[in-house]
């Protein structure tokens, strides 16, 4: 099966600093891949390259097997790659529909904003995520962290994303809302969406991911199926950049 996305030998330099150093990774339909690492390990940088917020210094990106150039967030969206940013990237003074459709507003025949239809569509997609969501015409600055996150997620899924990049999607959320996001990720996976999940929360990672890719100082130090590693193994990868020495021994049977 062709991967949804392949990033091949991606490099990103800032002056003399190598933020991303020859990293390759791929993502298949219906797969959740955890992208892990310390702050500054290069994972956010790598994801920003895929979402079009940053251009790579070198390397190749393939979408559905075809080599593409992603020069802007707009390009990424055209390829079906949607990103939910850690900072939530919402315009605080606008309401939920205005945020959901920001940059892709629905228009009437005369080119005017079709606020009525945007409101209806927003109601539909939000109902799927959180049936209790009612403050649709409030400025999003007045909403809770969870409600804001719902809007950010709704924005990504409304436009039929094939690839979803989630940067710490539950960092600002309470337990109930975290559970809701978890449920949503599982649902999207069933629908065949591929998800890159950047997270520091080991519980989330082991609950949601099929595979983890760990980065350390700009390098990828490995890609493992979640069943093959323990939390300690992953922590070792993150901290030391290598698996514990006894890993191969412990997994000998399974590896054969």
């Amino acid at each position: 099966m062709t991967p949804l996305v392949e990033m091949i030998a991606i490099e990103k330099h800032f002056g003399g600093i190598h933020a991303v150093n020859g990293v390759s990774l791929d993502l298949h339909p219906g797969e959740v891949v955890g992208v892990l690492g310390h702050n500054g390990a290069g994972k956010s940088c790598l994801m920003r390259i895929l979402s079009g917020a940053m251009r790579p210094s070198a390397g190749e990106i393939r979408v559905g097997g075809k080599t593409v150039e992603i020069n802007s967030p707009h390009d990424a969206r055209d390829f079906g790659i949607e990103t939910i940013y850690q900072t939530l990237a919402l315009a605080d003074h606008l309401d939920a529909p205005a945020n959901l459709f920001l940059g892709r507003e629905l228009r009437t025949r005369w080119g005017n904003l079709d606020d009525k239809r945007m409101m209806e569509e927003t109601r539909k997609v939000l109902a799927r995520l959180n049936p209790n969501f009612r403050n649709l015409s409030d400025a999003v600055s007045r909403l809770s962290g969870g409600q804001r996150q719902v809007i950010a997620i709704a924005r990504a899924i409304y436009f039929d994303a094939k690839v979803l990049i989630m940067d710490e999607p539950t960092a600002a959320l309470g337990p109930a809302e975290t559970a809701m996001v978890g449920k949503l990720i599982k649902q999207l996976r069933q629908e065949g969406v591929g998800i890159f999940l950047i997270s520091h929360d080991m519980h989330d990672v082991f609950d949601l991911c099929d595979r983890v890719v760990v980065m350390n100082r700009g390098h990828s130090v490995g890609s493992y199926r979640i069943d093959d590693v323990s939390k300690d193994d992953v922590l070792s990868l993150i901290i030391k950049g290598a698996l514990p020495e006894d890993w191969a021994l412990r997994n000998r049977e399974r590896l054969q």
Binding site: A53, P73, R77, T87, L88, A89, A91, L94, L102, G103
Partner: peptide, 16 residues
């Protein structure tokens, strides 16, 4: 215009 003044970075990332 409102979006840009409200959150410029978010607007840019949204394709504005």
């Amino acid at each position: 215009l409102y979006a840009t003044g409200s959150n410029e970075e978010a607007s840019r990332l949204s394709g504005v």
